[in-house]
Design a binder for these strands. Structure first.
Lengths: 217, 217
DNA sequence: GGTTTCAGTAAACAGTTGTGCGCCGAACGC
DNA sequence: GCGTTCGGCGCACAACTGTTTACTGAAACC
């Protein structure tokens, strides 16, 4: 935010190879996990010498953390738009699931990265993803708080709801990804399940009472 | 299942080092992911020569697949017992969350392994876990189908419900694990969120209608 | 136009890795 | 008791790893 890229030809070229490193890393991540990717493997894919890597990142982990911001940044805007959209529950659910499906189709590597490294072997990346998803859940909670249905909800309950939505979104995205590479049920089945689950949540939401006791059926 | 261990002293010793290999692998997995663990690293931890590894497993991946069966086998029995238990929703939820918490406290390495490798870099292990969780979801669906609330549910809806429970269980277990190592919110907060989420699902379940249209609020 | 900056290089460093080979020696079946 | 089985060992192999060093040459600055 402080130093926007000076448009000198040199920094421009530097930014280019930096991008190439990030892209190469992301590409290599399709078949292995970050902790098993070698620095040399990345530079080899880009076509530069191993030592040049250090001009851009301290570590492979460092590169990973950068990828986190990138990957989740794009998702952020997509979902935010999808949620704010005003319509009845059914339409909103369809839109949301459709948005996730489209995002996965357009940026498969990004969500593969996030899903794989969310609980992966590199602590720094793990916490970076966790922090982002936290912020994310908080934001979703705030959006949902503005709904009529959320009247009287406690902050903890709203927070819980946000987490539920975010977790569900990540799971759905992961399922779509598996579908795309033929590793699981086909896309339309995944979409169906995702819609059903959102409907389930939506129903639960509508009949929620913030105090602890369940209503005597 | 076919060849139960012959109780000769030699096979007994073989089983012992095999166990040691599995345990060592599991232990090493606390800080890295399977794809980055070296065969030598494991044998070194056990105290045998690298070549001896091949007497027990073809691969590190092979060892991983074995770990999957072990880790999820134990969880299987725990949850099955927790679900079948008959009581009102509130109690059942408390019991379930408590059971998960206890399991994580007793077998942290197992669930860490499952969560980490569920979307990890080793394809064989990934699919093994996926298959197990599938069977698992199916079974949960069948148990839930016996509830009074499930009258009139379509098979797809029941299946969806089973998946929802299983996914939630895995997520909760993972959250408990993070809590245990101080990487996230403390245990009682995790438990609270988990209970709320189960309550949400339970409410949605109770007001479910298997046909597509949502009831006009 | 001379000087400084700096992305990328080449080479060397000491480790590490997976895997194949032949051999041992203790427990085994008979 | 004897011949066989077989878990584990030592060693060698070629390939690979992350990191440091001193360097080059073109773009940037003034």
């Amino acid at each position: 935010m402080s130093s926007s890229t000076p448009h000198t030809q040199r920094d421009l070229q530097k930014a280019r190879t930096r991008r190439a490193l990030l892209d190469a890393g992301l590409a290599l991540l399709e078949e292995q996990s970050l902790s098993s990717i070698g620095l040399r493997e990345i530079t080899r894919a880009v076509g530069i010498s191993p030592a040049a890597f250090y001009r851009h990142f301290r570590d492979v982990a460092d590169l990973g953390v950068t990828l986190v911001e990138e990957s989740l940044g794009s998702l952020h805007t997509v979902i935010r738009a999808g949620l704010t959209e005003r319509s009845d529950d059914g339409e909103r659910i369809d839109h949301l699931v459709g948005a996730i499906a489209r995002f996965v189709r357009e940026h498969p590597e990004h969500i593969r990265f996030v899903v794989r490294e969310r609980h992966g072997g590199v602590a720094a990346v793990r916490t970076a993803i966790g922090a982002q998803l936290d912020r994310f859940a908080q934001e979703v909670a705030e959006v949902l708080a503005r709904d009529e249905v959320s009247r009287g909800w406690s902050p903890e309950d709203l927070r819980m709801l946000g987490e539920t939505y975010v977790d569900h979104m990540v799971m759905t995205a992961s399922a779509f990804l598996e579908a795309a590479q033929g590793e699981g049920p086909p896309e339309h089945v995944v979409a169906g399940t995702a819609r059903r689950q959102l409907r389930l949540i939506s129903l639960g939401r509508r009949h929620w009472t913030s105090d602890r006791a369940l209503p005597a059926s």
